[in-house]
C-alpha cells in the first residue's frame, strides 16, 4: 500500500466525519464531491501499484466523472428552488452525529480486524469502506430532508464500491459499469422525486410525509 493510496482513504474518512456534522446543504454537497473524486482516483492508484489496465482506466474515469461531478450537480439542481439552505432540526443533533461518526469508524476497525479472510494489508481499505457504509446508513436514518437522504444513499453506494475494491479483484467491467449506471439513475430518480415533493408540499421534509398508515 502506497502513501498515495492511504492519503485517499484517509480523505474519504475525513469527508465522512465532516458530512455528519454539517448542516449547510451546499457544503454537504461539496463534501460529497470531494469524496467522489477521492474514490474515483482509487482504482487508478491501485493500477499504479499492480499494473495499469484498460479496465482500471475506464472505471477510474467513469468514477471521477459520475461521483465527483454528476452526482453533486444533480443534488445542487434539486436544492436550487428550495427555500431551506440548511437542515435545522435533524433527528439526531450535529454534535452527537459527529461523535457517532467517530464511533462508527472505531466499530469498522474492530469489525475489519475480525474478518479472518481479509489480507492484513487491506485493513485500512476495509475500515474505510465499512465506515462509509455505516455513515451513509446513519445519515439516511438521522436526517429529515430528502436531499440529505440522497446524500446518505450516495455514501452507502460509495462505501460498497470501496468494499468491492477491497474484497474482490477483477470484477468484470460490464458489471462495474452496470452498477455505476444504476447508481447514477438512482440518484437522478431520487432528485426528480425530491423536486416533485417540493412542488407538491412546498417543503422537502420527508418526516412530514406521514399520511399513509396501517
Amino acid at each position: 500500500m502506497t502513501i498515495l493510496n492511504e492519503l485517499l482513504l484517509v480523505a474519504i474518512l475525513v469527508t465522512n466525519i465532516a458530512l455528519s456534522g454539517n448542516s449547510r446543504l451546499k457544503t454537504c454537497i461539496d463534501i460529497v464531491s470531494i469524496q467522489g473524486f477521492a474514490l474515483g482516483l482509487l482504482p487508478a492508484v491501485i493500477g499504479l501499484e499492480t499494473g495499469m489496465s484498460v479496465e482500471l482506466v475506464v472505471i477510474a474515469i467513469a468514477g471521477i466523472v459520475l461521483r465527483g461531478i454528476v452526482f453533486p450537480h444533480l443534488l445542487k439542481k434539486s436544492i436550487q428552488n428550495a427555500s431551506a439552505s440548511r437542515e435545522l432540526k435533524p433527528v439526531v443533533g450535529y454534535f452527537l452525529s459527529t461523535l457517532i461518526a467517530l464511533a462508527l469508524i472505531a466499530v469498522s476497525l474492530w469489525l475489519s480486524r475480525r474478518l479472518q479472510f481479509l489480507d492484513p494489508s487491506l485493513l485500512l481499505f476495509s475500515t474505510v469502506a465499512l465506515a462509509t457504509i455505516f455513515t451513509g446508513t446513519f445519515i439516511i436514518v438521522g436526517r429529515r430532508l430528502a436531499v440529505m437522504q440522497i446524500v446518505g444513499y450516495i455514501l452507502l453506494e460509495n462505501g460498497i464500491y470501496c468494499l468491492g475494491l477491497a474484497f474482490v479483484r477483477e470484477i468484470p467491467l460490464i458489471v462495474e459499469l452496470g452498477v455505476l449506471f444504476d447508481a447514477i439513475v438512482a440518484v437522478f430518480v431520487m432528485s426528480v422525486a425530491t423536486n416533485k415533493i417540493h412542488e407538491e408540499f412546498e417543503h422537502f421534509d420527508v418526516a412530514k410525509l406521514d399520511s399513509l398508515k396501517g
Binding site: 444513499y153 452507502l156 460498497i160 431520487m190 415533493i197 420527508v206 406521514d210 399513509l212
Partner: peptide
C-alpha cells in the same frame, strides 16, 4: 399520497438492494 408512497418505495428498496450487493461481493 402517491408521491409519498413513491419516495418511501425508492428509498427503502434502493438501500435494501444496496445491501444485497454487499452480499454479492
Amino acid at each position: 399520497a402517491s408521491l409519498e408512497a413513491m419516495w418511501r418505495y425508492i428509498i427503502m428498496c434502493s438501500v435494501g438492494v444496496a445491501f444485497a450487493f454487499i452480499g454479492t461481493l
